[in-house]
């Protein structure tokens, strides 16, 4: 990066971090994490010897039961397949006795390996919301306050100014997200070690968790960019938040009902929320209302989500930059 760009980034970073709104949203996010953590701390304890022994026995009993149940299940399944009733063939994998774990029989014990995924979903939602709010307000406030106009009197290349702002914003939100993820996941892991059970933390677990955290991080950046670009297009923080709220109410709720009433095929593919879900969960199965009439449920994967995100970002960011380049500033 050359010197003028560095100067611009420094000034932008200063502006972003000095914004009261950024600080408030950040503190609120920390508070949400704090509350989650505190309630978990309050509801977990290190299992005593007696509890462990009892749980071990309960687990053994369960395994015993499943070993017989699975044999019977396999027999019924073979029978169904033989008589051509494939539709009624049971899936016996859920009866696998190897899936019974000690942790399932412990009450009031936080098991990191079991809960980490759900906790990261929660984290992802907060980071995305944080990015959306900060991204929208950062550029929105500059546009309405005249700060942008002042800046353009120093740096007339608008695409450079807007690009630097977006870059600085993404860098900052990205860094805060990384720090949050590390602190959050690390915090719960330490909690499990100290007052709970770590669970089964093999290499596969850590890989999956790492990838999930990576996706949560990228999701936060997607929402940050969306907030920033929508506020740029609408010239106002409220424009971005308004579009977002209107989208949720009118489309995700209103249009979903209408589309279901008119039996629109694959209506769920039109809902952005499904892609957010698919992105985090890697794969989700969705059902249209017509499923009752025999339509098959279908799956949305993280690759569908990646495609939708890419197209949406390209469109909205492209529109924001073109509009900002051409508009009259007052």
């Amino acid at each position: 990066m050359n010197r003028p760009t560095v100067n611009l980034v420094r000034a932008e970073l200063h502006r972003l971090l000095a914004r009261r709104f950024t600080q408030v949203v950040f503190v609120l996010m920390l508070a949400a994490f704090g509350i989650t953590f505190a309630t978990t701390v309050a509801s977990t304890h290190t299992p005593t010897r007696a509890e462990l022994v009892a749980a071990e026995q309960a687990a053994d009993l369960q395994r015993e039961y499943l070993r017989t149940a699975i044999v019977q299940c396999e027999e019924r399944r073979a029978e169904a397949l033989r008589t051509g009733n494939a539709r009624f063939a049971e899936d016996c994998r859920s009866l696998d006795p190897n899936r019974v774990r000690l942790e399932d029989f412990l009450d009031g014990v936080f098991v990191f390996g079991e809960s980490a995924g759900d906790l990261v979903y929660f984290l992802a939602a907060f980071l995305a919301l944080f990015g959306l709010l900060v991204g929208a307000s950062y550029v929105g406030a500059e546009l309405t306050s005249g700060g942008m106009t002042n800046l353009l009197l120093w740096r007339p290349r608008r695409e450079v100014v807007l690009g630097t702002k977006l870059g600085t914003l993404l860098g900052t939100v990205g860094a805060i997200s990384v720090a949050s993820i590390v602190a959050y996941v690390g915090g719960f892991w330490l909690l499990a070690e100290a007052a709970g059970l770590p669970g089964n933390l093999d290499a596969q677990f850590w890989t999956q968790l790492g990838l999930l955290c990576l996706r949560a991080w990228l999701l936060a950046l997607v929402f940050t960019t969306l907030g920033f670009c929508l506020a740029t297009l609408g010239r106002h923080t409220a424009a971005a938040l308004g579009v977002f709220a209107a989208y949720l109410v009118l489309w995700e709720i209103g249009a979903r009902i209408v589309l279901n009433v008119i039996r629109w095929p694959r209506a769920e593919t039109l809902m952005f929320s499904n892609y957010v879900g698919a992105w985090l969960a890697k794969r989700i199965t969705v059902y249209d209302l017509c499923a009752l009439d025999g339509c098959a449920p279908y799956q949305l994967t993280l690759w569908h989500a990646a495609g939708v995100f890419a197209v949406l970002l390209a469109l909205i960011a492209g529109a924001a930059f073109v509009s900002f380049r051409r508009r009259d500033m007052s």
Binding site: N7, L8, R10, A11, H14, R15, A18, R20, S145, G146, G147, T149, N150, L151, W154, R155
Partner: peptide
């Protein structure tokens, strides 16, 4: 021109100076 109301005069100018 409108300046950021929460910044001091000095800080406002320092930011512009940094930019330039």
């Amino acid at each position: 021109p409108q300046f950021f109301a929460n910044f001091s005069g000095r800080r406002t100018l320092r930011l512009l100076a940094t930019t330039g």
